[in-house]
């Protein structure tokens, strides 16, 4: 690889012209990042359709080794970058988290495609995790289904720019130089459904609530509960539409139930009802105008 030292020159300190190809004056962070960004080794790890485009990106036409993603390693212990290329299922997320824990720091995660970013077209499925970021910290998201090789390259370059911005002077940027070994991400457990150990408390509370026969959102009877909320919202809409439209007519209260997301739900419903009421008002005005 041809080393362009000029690229590294980062100070105002003048380097004599005749020495430009031999000497560079730069900061330690920049030198360190320059080395890292140009030698990212992705893990050879394909999940689904996106993996095919990842292979196409690695092959001669697009060739990501031009950017330093030269060597794909099949073992996590030699990899810096995990490209989550495809749908993450509940069954697969267990090995993925384990693989991530086996990667040495510094390590990065790139979520390739709609599925890895947020569940994608399969999100509603019962075995699909809606996005890798539910379990691992994701650095770069690449949209697309699947992303074209160009898009993946763009995502990889974005990751390089992220690395450029990190500084070894800042402990938050380089947590891998902290004291002691890094905390591994807890590996999910396949029980009756997938169980994230970080949600144990919530599950315990749910189980206790179930024992006292208090239905909580998030339990098995969730769909029925959803329907209940939806039905109530519908009657509320009917009332709101029937009522004369002014600001106060919409001040009904939706059943909240004291769950953490009920508030957000409440606000969203109100916003929606207001929009519907406006729409109804417009329609009635239009009808009136046509009548005249």
């Amino acid at each position: 690889m041809e080393v362009k030292l000029q690229e590294l020159n980062a100070t105002e300190f003048p380097v004599p012209v005749e020495l430009e190809d031999n000497i560079a004056i730069t900061s330690l962070s920049q030198l360190y990042n320059w080395g890292r960004r140009n030698s990212m080794w992705p893990m050879l790890f394909g999940l689904a359709c996106c993996a095919i485009e990842m292979i196409a990106t690695a092959s001669s036409r697009f060739d990501f080794s031009r950017f330093g993603f030269e060597v794909m390693r099949a073992t996590p212990r030699q990899a810096d970058l995990m490209i989550v290329s495809g749908t993450v299922t509940k069954k697969m997320v267990v090995p993925i988290v384990r693989l991530y824990n086996q990667m040495p720091e510094p390590k990065y995660v790139l979520a390739m495609g709609a599925c890895a970013s947020g569940g994608g077209p399969f999100k509603e499925g019962y075995n699909v995790v809606s996005g890798m970021d539910k379990y691992l910290p994701v650095d770069v998201y690449v949209p697309g289904c699947p992303p074209t090789p160009q898009a993946l390259l763009f995502g990889m370059i974005a990751l390089q720019r992220k690395i450029d911005g990190q500084s070894i002077a800042n402990g938050d940027d380089v947590p891998w130089y902290g004291e002691g070994p890094a905390e591994p991400t807890p590996v999910p457990v396949l029980g009756p459904d997938i169980i994230d150990p970080r949600q144990m408390d919530m599950i315990r509370r749910q189980a206790e609530a179930a024992a006292e026969s208090m239905a909580l959102l998030g339990a098995r009877d969730l769909p029925a509960a959803t329907q209940m909320v939806a039905a109530k919202a519908e009657t509320a809409v009917a009332e709101a539409v029937a009522a004369p439209v002014d600001g106060d007519a919409l001040s009904f209260v939706l059943p909240t139930g004291g769950t953490p997301w009920a508030e957000a739900e409440d606000i969203r419903e109100k916003r929606r009802l207001r929009a519907l009421a406006r729409k109804a008002l417009r329609a009635s005005r239009r009808a009136q105008a046509e009548g005249e």
């Binding site: 999100k123 457990v189 919530m202 189980a207 024992a211 098995r220 009877d221 969730l222």
Partner: peptide
């Protein structure tokens, strides 16, 4: 739909579930 069900769960756990001994 995930706004209504943020954790994407639809399982009710029995009250006597022993999370400490939960194993795969």
């Amino acid at each position: 739909s995930e706004e209504k069900n943020v954790f994407g769960k639809n399982v009710s756990y029995p009250a006597d579930i022993d999370l400490g001994r939960l194993a795969d």
